[in-house]
Design a protein around this nucleic acid. Sequence first.
DNA 1: TACGGCAA
Length: 750
Amino acid sequence: MATPETPENEAAGERIEGAVLRVVHHNPQTRYTVLRVVRPGEVAPQTWVGRSTGIEEGMQVTAAGEWTHHPNYGKQFNFARIAAKAPTTLPGIQRRLERYPGLGAEKAERIVQRFGLDTLAILDKSPRRLLEVEGIGPKTLERIVAHHTARGGPTAEIENQLLELDLPTHFADAISQRFGETALNVLRQHPYRLAREVRGIGFITADKIARALGVDLESDERIEAGLFHTLEQSEQNGHCALPMPILVQNAERLLELPPARIEPAAMALVRSGALVLDQRESDEGEPLPPLCYPPRFYDAERNVAEILTDIALGAGKGRGRWTAVDPPPGLSAGQLAAIAAIRDAGLVILTGGPGTGKSTVTRAIIDTALANESPVLLAAPTGRAAKRLAEATGQRATTIHRLLEIEGGTGEFFHNAQNPLPEGLVVIDEASMLDLPLAEALLLALTPQHRLLLVGDADQLPSVGPGNVLRDVLAAADRADSPIPVVRLTQIFRQAEGSSIVTSAHAILRGKVPESDRSEGGQFYVVQARDSERAHELVLKAITERIPKAYGLDPRTEVQVLCPMHKGKAGTEALNAALQAHHTAGAPELVLPGRPPRVFRVGDRVMQTKNDHERGVFNGDIGLVTAVDPERQILTVEVDGDPVPYDSKQLNALQLAYAVSIHKSQGSEFPAVVVPLLGEHHVMLRRNLLYTAVTRARRLCVLVADPRALTQAVHRSDAARRFTGLRERLLTALRERLGERRTVRHIDGA
DNA sequence: TACGGCAA
Ligand SMILES: Nc1ncnc2c1ncn2[C@@H]1O[C@H](COP(=O)(O)OP(=O)(O)OP(=O)(O)O)[C@@H](O)[C@H]1O
């Protein structure tokens, strides 16, 4: 019986090399690239996917990344970094020549045999020597030279320059495409323009070129490039902008220059419009350090603020008051208030703690809309949260990306300002995970005739991308004079009254490290684990021994493991494999060959991770394996009572679901959860993450934690400190619009 | 330095 091995070399990522056989796809805008690559000593090509610029057929490349599975295209290597080696190997040069017109494999080989590593230099400097090679006549020579100089020219010069500097040559094409004849000049005189104007070249590469060339390290261009780079870096921490002093301070460290050189450069960028400076003051009117934005985020905030204002103030005509329908029995006062609020408002924010029935009450809200002949559109930022919303409402719900219909090829949305979504009530659940660019895309696809219900809890997870949309909108809407209704639910339904899950969650929010509830049938536990090996064991032990014995829960279907990360001994991948080995040992199984082999057994709990419109299974669907056919390499999963067949290709989009990431669990609930928290998770450990994980549990929450990791998670609360300005933008938009109204009325009255 | 959603 096969026990799946945990992948060992994947945790740190892998480094592999090969020769590019074919560029299957390349989008110059997004740099999204699909390659077929042949590894040294192998024959069958493999698929590599990632972002890159200037990769061409025949290049020797090295890449760092990891192996993944794609539902339609199978096993593939997802690279985070890729670099072309200069064609310094004979086969590399030969492959390059093979693509020249008039040269096939045979002649190319003969040329390379004759001139060896000097081949390219000879093509550059004395191409007539090619006539020395058997089979190459004047005609062929002419075509070769024409092609070589056409593709060469500036590109070849750039390549040579890069080679001289001992830098990778694969940027040469992109550089010469962008700057044409002047490329070499730009490279030598203004290397930092490359960082801004050539996709794929960042500050670090440009700085290497500049340093190698001995360019002035105090030039304005270098400082400006450093400022842009600093802002891009902070985007990864969720910021849309940086306060000027912090921007200068971070740039100082990057550039190793004094602030007195950096500040004026930043101000010059602001004057030219390359950066936007937002002068701020506190609510008390005290000046605050101004925020410095990349223009696209400033514009996005303004668009979001304007459109939210349009919808909130009902700029559209014909959006009357909805008539009430009888609500279902047993709703809390807050839930009833939420139903009432949407009847005559364009925009409503529905918030409140975990398990207060926010998602649940949307069902009654939707009934009100439908009774008033308004269509409804439901969506959430993650597939799993969308699925939960669909279950809670009995309506179709999708990811926001799918609602807007992301287009193949461009990655743009089908629905936008020119082609808005069909009118009706739009419900966005788990809105705390909505980032600024997606919020902008969503709102651009709405009209003032739409109604919008934003549902979420700002204490739960913030978006992965930049922005803090829900928190900012709430901060503006919560002001006494705000016209945006906020309904706040307080009565908790998920856990029993007085549950230590709730008191522990509240302790976490207040920055206190929670402790085990040692009372009879206690619902909250912290089990100490020194390291991830031990944690792995303790998680298994809790699930297979302690929890079934003490709480009478079915370990396979009622206990959910929630992990901060996928990788590592205490990540979803390793724990899923270990839990499977326990839960379905001995059941009929299907083993898919590969490294490591993938195993599915009858009885396994599984989750679909990609949208498959044709078969009607979507990212976030959870099911149970009901039958396997090892001979035909197929199996059946029951999803929502329907059998869904999977062939070996489609199984690439299926994962075990005994352990899932905390991000994907937001919105869901389980009788019991077990959460590993370890040093290896430190990059992820935040208060919101822990709070979200704990509050998924209805009856039992067990933290298997290294005490230091737990303390870190409780104390780190930087979601509250993302630098964004949507609150101010929204307040300004509302003030302007309300002011306008008053003015209009005043004129009317006069 | 990772979490989510996409792309042929
Ligand atoms: N009025 C009610 N009476 C009884 N049970 C309720 C009521 N409202 C909600 N519930 C139950 O409470 C649980 C939590 O509800 P729900 O998932 O809607 O909460 P939520 O506020 O959306 O939580 P989260 O913030 O975690 O997404 C569910 O099991 C739901 O069935």
